[in-house]
């Protein structure tokens, strides 16, 4: 059976989501996408910089890759909603990653504002993927609001520190019926594999790939790690196997005695 998963009305087979930020050259983007097989990639929306003579980043992204515009730059729900609407108007599809950040020091997301934006955008027909601080009670609210998946952070954006929120993320994976996509902080393929072994539906890796000396090979390395982690999860690998029946039965021996 093919191991596919669905977000909104799109099916994915590759569980590595990538981002377009911080590449030394945009030319690496299509090569990285090809090497990794990533089927979803994030983009951001900004005011055009007239001095820089920038090119359209969308022209570097093959048509079969799903665009996931983010709302980076938004500091509250209203700004996130505005950015989402502009992105959709630009023909980017219905997917939106909501990112509301007030904290310029650690770039931690604001769950409350993110939730408000989720509620509004779901009603407007978006497929909403909120980027959140892992928090069990918020996750339920995001589910109720109609989010299509949840993107909890592993650690601070760009920190490469790995899944420092592991305990909470494994609770989310256990408790949520939505796909959990670990976003932010994954700096090494081994960390991506760890997230997948835990049962994450996918991971999103941007900086670690784009800032590598060889981003194309890095993309492939992450993709293989994600596959390995996913396969380990599916193989249902167990911990230590305890011994079977023991000779004496202190707790259940009474059952036999009474016969």
């Amino acid at each position: 059976m093919k191991d596919v998963f669905k977000i909104g009305n799109k099916e994915f087979t590759n569980r590595l989501f990538t981002g377009t930020g911080k590449f030394a050259s945009k030319k690496f983007i299509p090569l990285m996408l090809e090497a990794s097989g990533s089927e979803m990639i994030t983009v951001a929306l900004r005011r055009v910089d007239f001095s820089a003579g920038d090119e359209n980043i969308l022209s570097y992204i093959p048509k079969n890759v799903v665009l996931l515009p983010n709302t980076s730059g938004a500091r509250n729900s209203a700004e996130a909603v505005r950015i989402a609407n502009i992105a959709r108007e630009a023909g980017c599809g219905d997917f939106i990653k909501i990112e509301v950040i007030n904290d310029s020091r650690y770039l931690m997301p604001d769950n409350m504002e993110t939730l408000k934006a989720t509620e509004i955008l779901v009603k407007d027909g978006f497929t909403v993927l909120p980027y959140v601080m892992p928090d069990v009670s918020f996750i339920k609210r995001f589910e109720d609001a109609g989010a299509a998946a949840i993107m909890p952070l592993g650690s601070a954006i760009g920190s490469n520190r790995g899944i420092r929120t592991k305990e909470i993320i494994s609770m989310l994976i256990e408790l949520s019926r939505l796909p959990i996509i670990v976003d932010a902080g994954i700096g090494r393929p081994s960390q991506a594999a760890e997230a997948m072994e835990m049962g994450a539906a996918a991971v999103l890796v941007n900086t670690a790939i784009s800032s590598a000396e060889d981003p194309v090979t890095a993309g492939k390395a992450f993709s293989l790690a994600v596959q390995a982690g996913r396969m380990a999860y599916l193989a249902d690998m167990r911990g230590e196997i305890t011994s079977g029946a023991v000779a004496s039965s202190p707790l259940t021996g009474f059952l036999g005695e009474r016969k």
Partner: peptide, 10 residues
């Protein structure tokens, strides 16, 4: 049912 004791221990 053959593993009822280890189940009970756990």
């Amino acid at each position: 049912a053959d593993f009822i004791e280890p189940m009970a221990q756990k």
